[in-house]
């Protein structure tokens, strides 16, 4: 367990995973559930246990839609989405770890000229440092 990473994630997110009472409402409401290897409730628990590296290596962290459904509906105000974001940042802040690269953008636009700017800037902000 890498305590340093755990502390970093807790500090960045401002989330206290100990507030979680393991009701699973986050995973029950998550629109990206099927796309994820680790689901929101597991992510909260894994952060609590300090299994950050496992999460950093998982594609799950790129599947969160940041729709805030888990944040809004959590009865304990845990805010799982903030953990996902902190873990993803812990990855992409490392050199060469951008999930979406600037050079890929022209291809995306070419593939679908209707893609709104909003989609591109949002994806870029989520996936790239």
């Amino acid at each position: 367990m890498n305590n340093n990473l755990k502390e970093q994630v807790l500090r960045m997110s401002g989330v206290n995973p100990l507030k979680c009472m393991r009701c699973g409402k986050c995973s029950a409401t998550c629109p990206s559930y099927d796309e994820m290897e680790y689901h929101p409730h597991q992510i909260v628990y894994m952060v609590e246990k300090g299994e950050i590296e496992k999460l950093m290596a998982s594609p799950s962290i790129y599947k969160c839609l940041s729709c805030f459904a888990c944040v809004e509906r959590c009865p304990r105000d845990v805010e799982p989405a903030k953990l996902v974001e902190a873990i993803r940042l812990a990855v992409i802040r490392q050199q060469g770890q951008n999930h979406l690269k600037a050079k890929d953008i022209p291809d995306l636009i070419e593939a679908d000229p209707d893609l709104p700017q909003q989609a591109l800037v949002t994806a870029f902000r989520k996936y790239t440092k």
Partner: peptide
């Protein structure tokens, strides 16, 4: 509920 948002750039099936 969410429309799938910016995931369209990653995976249009979502």
């Amino acid at each position: 509920e969410c429309c799938g948002g910016y995931m369209a750039t990653e995976d249009q099936s979502v």
